[in-house]
Simulated scan of single mutants.
Amino acid sequence: MTSDNTMPRNKTFTTRKMVTVAMLSAIATVIYYLDFPVPLMPGFIKLDLSNVISLLAGFSMGPIAGVIVCLIKNVIQLIIKGLGTTMGIGNIFDFVTSAAFVLTASVIYHKKKTRKNAIISCIIGTLVFTVISLPLNYFIVYPIYFKAFGGEAAILGMYQQIMGSVKNIFSALCIFNLPFTFVKGIICALVTILIYKPLSPILKGKD
């Protein structure tokens, strides 16, 4: 009798979790499309807050759920927009960095589910998010952008319009992209910390 009663509960939980992940993925996709340019950055670099939704999934349902939301969000956009001249490198970059952010923060948070640890996990996740963006951009993403958008000089010129003293792409990434990525991570972390507690009962299916 105990086994019979347990199975429906497990099945219901699994189904509800899948539905919640699908719902959050849809929301993350919409937010991903609502990106916007930021001052003092080249026009092709935009800010979006879709990682807030991925973090909510990771905190409420575990790290894998958060990574799945990151994946679905990018796959949907690739399906809609296509690979384009950059072969979808922007989406691949977003998935890898976002997944690293969410995975790191969620794993740390689930070790001790307190507000203090949530803050610590988000800070560490933001640092990972920021640090891995530099080699990925320099060695993989930007070389593809060079081929797609008229060469290294064309991309560097966009940075030099903002700061003429920038001499090469590496320094441009350090001066512009690293602080931007860090600020983006901090904003997503702050929003997540502020809204997670009131949303937690809904995400976890508690009345």
Rank of each mutant, 00 (worst) to 15 (best):
M1C: 03
T2Y: 02
T2P: 01
T6V: 14
N10T: 03
K11A: 14
T15S: 10
V21W: 03
A22Q: 00
A22P: 01
A22G: 06
L24T: 06
A26N: 03
A28M: 09
T29A: 14
I31N: 08
Y32K: 08
Y33A: 09
Y33P: 00
F36C: 04
F36R: 10
P37T: 13
L40G: 05
P42V: 05
F44R: 02
I45R: 01
S50V: 01
N51G: 10
V52Y: 00
I53G: 02
I53V: 15
S54P: 04
L55C: 11
G58Q: 03
F59Y: 11
F59L: 13
S60H: 00
M61L: 15
M61V: 07
P63T: 11
P63L: 04
I64G: 00
G66Q: 10
I68W: 08
V69R: 00
L71V: 04
V75T: 07
I79H: 02
I80C: 02
G82Y: 06
T86F: 06
I89E: 06
I89C: 09
I92D: 05
I92R: 02
D94V: 02
F95N: 07
V96M: 10
S98C: 09
A99F: 02
S106R: 02
S106H: 01
V107Y: 13
Y109R: 04
K112L: 05
K116R: 10
N117W: 01
I119Q: 01
T126H: 05
T130M: 14
T130H: 07
S133N: 02
S133T: 11
L134P: 08
L134C: 10
L136K: 03
I140N: 00
V141R: 11
Y142N: 13
Y142D: 12
P143L: 06
I144V: 15
Y145M: 10
G150E: 10
Y159L: 09
S165W: 07
S165K: 10
K167N: 13
K167R: 15
K167M: 14
N168V: 07
S171I: 15
A172Y: 06
L173T: 03
I175R: 11
N177V: 15
L178Q: 13
P179I: 04
P179R: 09
F180S: 05
G185L: 08
G185T: 11
C188A: 14
L190F: 13
T192N: 04
I195V: 14
Y196Q: 05
K197L: 07
K197Y: 09
P198C: 10
L199T: 07
S200M: 10
P201K: 06
P201C: 05
I202H: 09
G205Q: 03
K206S: 09
K206M: 12
